[in-house]
Design a protein around this nucleic acid. Structure first.
Lengths: 148, 148
DNA sequence: AATAAAATGGATCTTGACATCCATTTTGAG
DNA sequence: CTCAAAATGGATGTCAAGATCCATTTTATT
């Protein structure tokens, strides 16, 4: 249901938040998040155009978050790379009266709204702050940090 | 976020429920739901293999629901054509300990769970029963019925 | 038995998501 | 100034989703 690109973007941003405000190279992010390097490059370009990250060329450069982890929500990331697509008008194009959806699409949009709300309420800082509940947790983003 | 195929499948099933238990031809369903005829055919084949609808060849044949609208949920339809894809293990494949997701994926899966719950709680009968709240509603599935 | 209505299965086409590669540009460090 | 590190942009490749078409099979009606 969530595209691969969204997954990649979120991983990258979580990693950036984890190391914030240090710049990280595409290479480093790719290694830490297991995202294919060349494709990650494109995904980061998208995030850059959306203004969520800033990029710096040359030695010592890399990618940094454009906002603090406390204010950056995962909704912003999702919307930047692939909008949720809230349903605003009847997809059948019949008597398209904006506000009034048929019962079916009202339900579908309602589901999207729930997701949107949940994502809007979750900041990156929150994700990083989450106490690593149980022992053998996913090695990313908590747990031990691979060298630099 | 929801694929086109899911959208088509839901439209078709709502229409079938609306006319339940009469059989409807692919042609009729396509016309009523504005879904491209040939593609709808494939979608219905999927629903048929999943056991949600029954098909009858020949004159007087067509497609009918395999369950009553009261017991058929939109979750069943969605799962039949394109599973939600709940996240069960860390997508990074690291220390894959089933139950324990990292905070990021816990959030993502939680969103999926909300959608799943909402969809499981909604039957087709419920969608059809919904009082047509406001005047110019989407002409489908409520409103006037185009001739048989 | 013949016919017409209907679904089925297979082949094909198009498009966008995912992915890779490379030449170019920017930029800090020596 | 030169060099190497890094992002950028463009071109390309692959594959599945979305979509179409047609020959075949099933089946009710006459």
């Amino acid at each position: 249901m969530f595209s691969q690109t969204v997954e990649y973007a979120l991983r990258a941003v979580v990693h950036l938040a984890d190391r914030s405000p240090s710049p990280r190279t595409t290479e480093q992010i790719a290694a830490a998040t297991k995202v294919p390097r060349p494709y990650l490059s494109k995904v980061l370009q998208g995030l850059s155009r959306a203004g969520l990250v800033k990029s710096q060329r040359g030695i010592g450069g890399g990618i940094t978050l454009a906002k603090s982890p406390e204010t950056l929500t995962i909704l912003e990331v999702v919307e930047a790379v692939e909008p949720l697509g809230r349903i605003k008008t009847c997809p059948l194009g019949l008597s398209a009266h904006g506000v009034n959806l048929c019962p079916l699409h009202k339900r579908l949009d309602n589901a999207l709204a729930m997701v949107e709300d949940a994502f809007r309420a979750t900041t990156l800082a929150e994700i990083l702050a989450e106490p690593t509940t149980s022992v053998p947790l996913c090695a990313f983003p908590g747990g031990m940090r691979p060298a630099s």
